[in-house]
Simulated assay, not measured.
Amino acid sequence: MLYQKNWARAWLGLGLVWFLAAIALAPSNKIYQQGLVLFLWLPTLLLAWSARAVLVQAWKRQPALWLSVLLLFAWSGLSLTWSPTEDLGREIKRLIYILVFLLAFPLLAQLGLARIRQLMLIGSALLAVAALVSIINFYGLKGQHLLERLEGIGEISHPILGAYVIGSAVLFLLYLPPRQRGMQLLWLAALVCLGAFATLSQSRGAILALVVTVVIAPLWFRDRHSRVFSILAVLATGLAFYLAYDLIAARGSSYRPEIFYAVFHMIAAHPWAGLGLGADYDVIAAGMQFDHSHNMFTHVALEIGLPGMLLWVMVWLFTLGEIVRARGTLFGKLLLGFWVYSTMAMQFDAASLTGTPRAEWFISWLPVGLAMMLPWGRAENGACGKISGST
């Protein structure tokens, strides 16, 4: 089969690494998007026919998850009939992009989840390099004061959304420590760079999501390493409040309660249909204007109504269901932490579910896509158990 060829697998693997790392390292957003087309979308479409049996298996193994995704897309497409957006073709194209992105993951699963973890480590390590370059560039070359909020390179320049991307890399690295002493030093250095970026971004939502995830991770990892990381996270948080409480509290609640209250009334004005996919809106709260709702779920409700939000909740909960089923595997445990982190991150600043690939995809479509690989991970784990049991 064509999709089983080494060159095909390498092509798809490069696409995953590109998605993870090039968001920061690509010279421009246009090149990042073009790279995704070349390294992920194109091979997925070219290999889909030869891998049709895999895609059929994906549907049969996770019918509820795939059906909820398709229903969400169908409702989103239907909302275009009342959307004020002038470019309907662009919105339809974006939905197709997301679908092809998700279709890539069952194909990627054929590499084996051990290889997928390696690719995620590579992508996270490259993001650590981007974090270090960002810190040197912003505070060194640009001469910004250390108390200024860090703006990263590439598409992690937004302090909040960039911190969400970097926080994802922390979780991918943290629970996959290498065994070789030299590699352990590089692993630790990478975590320091990523942690420094998250801290200097002063993104309280991202840091809170990351700290809470690490603190409760021993509930499902149940090992000494996760307990050590949990204790360190608590100590680091306590130290941060002791040393920099005024800085942490300076921005108050960042008008999040006022924004939520205003958005609640906006949703009430169009509860069933929403404004329509791709509709622009402004939120007026506390006498100021905000260009989005600062919450993924309320954003979806504003755009495509409460039915659309319910469908997105279904997608998200079915994703959790698949992860919980695989909680006995290392990959399942990693994804459970990632799901908790992403769920919390969505509450504070995320307002793009169907836009082109961007930072928000790290806490929306990436967890869904990774969960779509889990049936093959459970099969691998079962096969390993049978082999070990027979020896």
Rank of each mutant, 00 (worst) to 15 (best):
W49P: 12
G328S: 10
S157R: 13
T391H: 10
Q144L: 12
W376C: 05
L235V: 14
G274V: 00
P63K: 08
M183T: 06
K30T: 14
Q110N: 11
R256I: 06
P271Y: 02
A268R: 12
L72F: 15
P307I: 14
P84G: 09
Y281W: 04
A128G: 13
W361I: 00
V313K: 05
A233G: 05
R52W: 14
A48W: 14
D282R: 13
K93S: 12
L71K: 11
S28I: 13
L200N: 01
A236M: 03
F172S: 12
R358V: 05
A21W: 02
A350Q: 07
T319F: 08
G278Y: 01
L95G: 08
A209C: 03
L42A: 08
G321P: 06
L119F: 05
L310H: 05
G143V: 03
F318Y: 15
T81N: 12
A268K: 13
P159L: 03
L111K: 01
Y281I: 06
L320K: 05
R117Q: 15
P375T: 06
V300G: 07
S168Q: 13
P257T: 03
C193S: 12
L25W: 01
I323A: 01
Y175S: 08
L176I: 10
I153H: 09
A209P: 03
S226W: 00
W59H: 06
V54S: 14
K386P: 02
A269N: 06
A273D: 11
L88N: 04
W59L: 12
D282S: 11
K142I: 03
Y97T: 08
F338L: 13
T237L: 14
I363C: 02
A24V: 01
G355H: 03
P367K: 05
T391A: 13
L121E: 10
Y255L: 12
A279V: 01
R358C: 06
A279C: 02
T343L: 12
Q118N: 15
A51R: 14
A51I: 00
P271G: 00
W312Q: 11
A163S: 14
L25C: 01
I216T: 00
H225M: 05
L80M: 08
G162Y: 00
S76A: 15
I96N: 02
L111E: 02
A131R: 06
L243G: 03
A209H: 00
Y97M: 10
L38P: 10
L107K: 06
L277E: 10
W316H: 14
L146C: 05
K60S: 13
I23H: 10
I304W: 11
L108Q: 02
I259D: 06
L42Q: 09
G143K: 11
S201E: 08
S68F: 14
G274S: 01
R117P: 06
G143P: 04
